[in-house]
Simulated assay, not measured.
Amino acid sequence: MRVSGTSTTDENAGLPEVIKTAARQLLVKLGAGGLSLAAVAEGSGLAVAEVEAVFPHRDDLLTALLIDVYNESGAAMEQAEQAAREANAPAGARLLAATRALRQWSFDNPGEFTLIYGSPVPEYHAPQDTVPPASRTPAVLAGIIRSALEAGELTPPRRVLAGPPLLRPEAVELFGGLPEAPFSDVIERGIVLWSNLIGLLVFQVFSRTHDSVRDEAAFFDYAIAVAAEGVGLMVPLDEHTD
């Protein structure tokens, strides 16, 4: 344990990472709602005053964790998608690669996954700073769907949305504009795909499917392929076992 008051300038510069690392280690044990600056101080070997000097309030620490975690999970998807794209994989295979990467990240980081996709933390309201990092996951999905649309890889839907778009301007901007018929509702369909992905991960990370399917990895791939059909995208499946 480092004694309070003996930090060098370099040590002070590294305090945010030390504190966040300790906080992330406590997420599995305490949950985000149980996280406190006192607990983090004890876990990091710092005085509470040192933690408060970096993160004056628990909410400041939660915001920093959210930004880091959203960025990490989004980067995992981006890197997998880029590797598949560089291998000239079709859009469906790129989607499978990106979602598999998020699944692996989620199992490797269950506390962090729960932070961003579990129950909301009481009395905490994420600030605008968390929006760009949180947008990286849907941006990967949107980019794959957009490229598939431009490459002619999407199958027109049987059912089309009746009435005007159900979208906020931010969603249209993220996708790069409203597509024309017969794909005018593909953004809404992409949001359904996104919600299916996160719901599937919640089921698997929180062990809701382990007593229903014998091969959860293969089931994940199958579920992504089924969900992708909603946007008209064919996902190639191979032999995959745990």
Rank of each mutant, 00 (worst) to 15 (best):
A76D: 07
V40I: 13
P133F: 07
W194G: 12
S4E: 12
I145N: 04
F55W: 09
V186E: 09
R189W: 09
V40H: 05
V18M: 12
I187P: 04
P138A: 04
A23I: 06
E239A: 14
R158N: 12
S195T: 14
R159E: 15
L46V: 08
A64Q: 08
S135Q: 15
I224R: 01
R136N: 04
E180P: 03
R189V: 10
T137H: 14
A148R: 03
D211G: 09
V18F: 04
A101K: 02
V202Y: 11
A13V: 13
I198P: 03
V28R: 13
V28D: 12
N109T: 05
G74K: 02
A13S: 08
A22C: 06
L65R: 03
M77P: 08
H125C: 09
L161T: 10
T114R: 13
F206S: 13
S73M: 14
A228N: 04
G230C: 08
E112F: 03
R2P: 00
A171F: 12
S7G: 08
V192S: 09
T114Y: 06
A87C: 02
E86D: 15
R2G: 02
T155I: 12
P110F: 00
G43Q: 11
A76R: 06
L65V: 08
F220R: 00
P182S: 08
K29S: 14
A162N: 13
T130M: 07
A142V: 00
I67V: 14
I198H: 10
A76S: 11
A171R: 13
S195W: 14
G34T: 08
G111T: 06
D129R: 12
E52G: 05
E42L: 11
I67E: 11
Q25H: 15
N88D: 15
L15G: 01
N196W: 08
S4P: 08
A49K: 14
A134Y: 07
V172W: 07
D10P: 01
E150F: 07
P169T: 09
D242K: 12
P157S: 05
L65K: 05
S212T: 11
T21F: 13
I67K: 06
D221A: 10
N12A: 14
F203V: 10
R100H: 14
W194S: 14
P182R: 10
D68C: 04
E81M: 10
P236V: 02
D185P: 01
A22E: 04
F113D: 07
V235S: 00
A171N: 11
L161R: 11
I198G: 00
V18Y: 04
A75L: 14
S212I: 11
A225C: 02
R159W: 14
A32K: 03
D108F: 06
F219M: 11
L27F: 01
P157T: 05
P165D: 05
L27C: 03
S184T: 09
G230E: 06
S184D: 15
V140R: 07
L35V: 09
V140Q: 11
S119M: 13
L61S: 06
A101Y: 10
W105H: 06
V192R: 01
Y70L: 01
A38H: 08
Q104H: 13
G190E: 13
A139P: 02
F206W: 12
T9S: 14
L35C: 00
Q79L: 15
I224Q: 02
L96I: 01
A49N: 12
H210W: 13
I145E: 06
T9A: 15
